[in-house]
Simulated assay, not measured.
Amino acid sequence: MRHRRWTALGSSNIPAILISSMAAAAPFLVNFTAFAALAQEAREFSTQTGTVLVETLASGLEHPWAVEAMPDGALIVTERPGRLRILRDGKLSDAIKGVPTVAAHGQGGLLDVALDRQFATNRTIYLTLSARGEGGYGTALVRAALSQDGRSLTDAKEIFRMNRFTRKGQHFGSRIAIDKDGSLFFGIGDRGEGERAQDPHDHAGSVLHINADGSIPASNPFRGGTGGLAEIWSTGHRNPQGITFDPEDGKLLTVEHGARGGDEVNNPQPGRNYGWPVITFGKDYSGVEIGEGTAKEGLEQPLFYWDPSIAPGAIAVYRGSMFPEWNGDLLIAALKYQLLTRLDRDETGTVTAEERLFDGEFGRIRDVIVAPDGALIMVTDEEDGEVLRVSKAPTQ
């Protein structure tokens, strides 16, 4: 077994993760369950809490990056080269028309998709993507409306674009978490230029917060002031690729890539600095020490970190009914070791153990969500990427 080390910092109330905001209506459950009948290559895996079944819902996707559940039981999926598709009743749609042009450069392309809290009536979706502009490439966020037949986007409007582009191809972020008031939280990485994460007048290396129309929420720490850009919520992040709210306590949670070690789970607070690259639990890929150590006054500590890195792609908190024994646990999709990790938490929110699932079985797991029926949905970031469903195996 590969040697692994994980560490939890802090004592309680670790905020959690990405779960679908859509209601689990009966028609949804019927349609969603239909995927199981159409799935191929179902496999059983033993876990510490019982046996799970992993089914392939779709394959042949080109580097899928994100998946989200729709109210009618379908799934909407992004492909990094720039395609947005719908998976319904075991069939993938053609690419949805009207998706804005993306700059598929390095790690960039079409990234996250999120459904507005009122999607069932307004058909509004949000996309993060890498765009090309003056100086190179950067992260943007787009709002659009999905047609009733699901074949096209209309009224696409860019509501955010980061303020400084670079020709570097890494660390674009960028998942979206939608707050109860409909405002959007999302992360942008340091774009491969670590010092930018310490500049509150630079969007790189930050968690950002905007309203659904692109305006600035009143709760933002630098709104109306000179201490930083009005959109910035927190700074000092290396590459936050997972972000969500715990539906139980409403706390914001991120997971971000470290270098060679130092992947972190954080609870971003307004105006706080999370340290990168001044402090980190990782080293440079060359083995050289980074920054000034692992702690410094005025800089926040992570709630949890990994060393060595697992390369986290997304994070979710389990609040479903299918696996009640996982209630409140953190689920993190991992690219490096091609696995899903489950962080077991006690009643105070403290991480007490880690279980690693599907190690190397399916490829690079990029996203994980909790579906309304309590199953997990994952996508694999491969040239022949898949959509997978994890459910409790039938008892004999």
Rank of each mutant, 00 (worst) to 15 (best):
D344N: 09
L252S: 04
A375N: 12
F32T: 07
V265M: 10
F245Q: 10
V370W: 01
R4V: 07
Q48R: 10
L141D: 12
A144M: 01
I188A: 12
P302N: 13
D344Y: 08
D181S: 15
G291M: 06
P312Q: 02
Q396G: 09
D384Q: 14
V99R: 10
T33A: 15
A197V: 08
F304I: 10
P240M: 10
T341E: 14
N239I: 03
E41C: 00
F323A: 12
G250M: 09
P71D: 12
F186D: 03
E62P: 00
G214R: 12
N220M: 09
R167I: 00
G287F: 05
R88Y: 04
K91Q: 12
Q170R: 06
F358Y: 13
K97W: 00
L146Y: 06
K157M: 01
E264Q: 15
S11V: 04
R366F: 10
P200E: 12
I176Q: 06
G189P: 04
G282C: 03
K91W: 00
K296D: 03
R85K: 06
R345S: 04
F32A: 11
Y285Q: 06
R151V: 03
Q48P: 01
I159Q: 13
T56N: 15
H201W: 02
R238Q: 06
R223P: 01
F362L: 06
L111A: 01
L331K: 08
T49W: 10
M70E: 12
I315Q: 12
L153C: 09
R123A: 14
A103T: 10
G60M: 07
L335F: 13
V30I: 08
G374N: 03
P200D: 10
H105M: 07
D329I: 03
E158L: 10
R132V: 00
H171F: 02
E79M: 03
N31I: 00
L111K: 09
L376C: 05
D249M: 04
Y274F: 14
G50S: 08
P221E: 01
G320E: 08
S12D: 05
R196G: 00
W326T: 07
A120Y: 03
F32H: 14
D179W: 07
N163W: 01
R196S: 13
I96L: 05
G374A: 13
F281C: 06
L84E: 00
A204L: 11
G106I: 11
T101F: 02
K180L: 06
A204Q: 14
G214D: 02
I125T: 03
A212H: 08
G133Y: 05
G187M: 07
W306V: 08
K157I: 03
A103I: 09
R43A: 15
I310L: 13
I188M: 14
V113N: 03
G182C: 10
L127C: 11
L252G: 12
G106T: 14
R123P: 07
K251M: 06
G360L: 11
V102H: 07
S215F: 05
G109M: 02
E383M: 09
D155T: 02
L303R: 15
I159E: 01
T56W: 04
D190I: 01
P270I: 09
